[in-house]
Amino acid sequence: MQFDPVEQAEIREARLSMLTEEQIAVYESVTADLVAGSGGLHFLDAPAGTGKTFLLEVLLAFVRSRGELALAVAASGIAATLLPGGQTAHSTFKIPVRLLRSNKDVCAVGAQSKQAEVFRRVRLIVWDEISMTNRKDLESVDRCLRDVRKQDKPFGGVTLVCSGDFRQLLPVVVNGTRANSVMACVCRSSLWKLFKRHRLTRNIRLLCSSEPAMYQKFTELLM
């Protein structure tokens, strides 16, 4: 999908003034990596209502306003539709769909394919609902991007912003126990220590609530 850089710049500028202090801190951290071309892995811990999607849209607009390529993916189709140009992670990265995953699974992306060329050009990947993703899928994407981009850096040197809420749904493990689901989380991956963690705590969705007491109670439950 093509995006008009001028239109994306207008979106970015219009929304920058609407970001909270927490969101601005994340925005500045991610864009600093993008400008430096240093890659960088970020995880955004964002309970429902804290403006996660709004912030991700601003980050996507930042890259696209520069005429560069940014990919928006999510663990589920519903979450993907909320992001401009969003697709499921499985569709974008050709992640193998298997009941039993292994540490050697690879994404079905040929070196000469159109998708491989997209991966060579991409500057930013936004991956929403990462908390629902099996860690082995994340590791498969890491191997794929390193191979396609010919860079032995995490995710081939692409700036990656993952977001989600581990207090919600965890990865589904067929016939697995709760412990199996916990062990399948991306935070159990060897890659996790490379991520810079950010957290959004201000529940914007409920700030305009006519019942402050209910807002406070609900916010505490989410956190």
Rank of each mutant, 00 (worst) to 15 (best):
M1T: 10
F3T: 10
D4R: 04
A9I: 08
V26L: 04
V26G: 01
Y27N: 02
E28A: 02
V30C: 00
V30Y: 00
G40P: 00
H42E: 01
A48V: 01
G49M: 03
G51T: 10
G51H: 05
T53H: 02
L56M: 14
V58Q: 09
L60K: 08
S65E: 14
S65D: 12
S65G: 08
L69A: 08
A72W: 08
S76G: 13
S76N: 06
G77K: 06
G86V: 10
A89L: 05
H90T: 08
S91M: 06
I95Y: 05
P96C: 08
R98I: 09
S102G: 15
D105F: 04
A111I: 12
S113L: 11
R121L: 06
R123W: 10
W127Q: 12
D137C: 15
D137H: 06
D137A: 09
L138P: 01
S140I: 02
S140T: 01
S140A: 13
S140R: 04
V148F: 11
P154H: 08
C162L: 04
S163R: 06
F166Q: 12
Q168E: 14
A179F: 14
N180M: 02
V182R: 08
C185A: 14
R188S: 15
K193M: 15
K193C: 12
F195E: 06
H198N: 01
L200S: 05
I204V: 15
L206F: 12
P212D: 14
M214H: 15
Q216Y: 07
T219K: 05
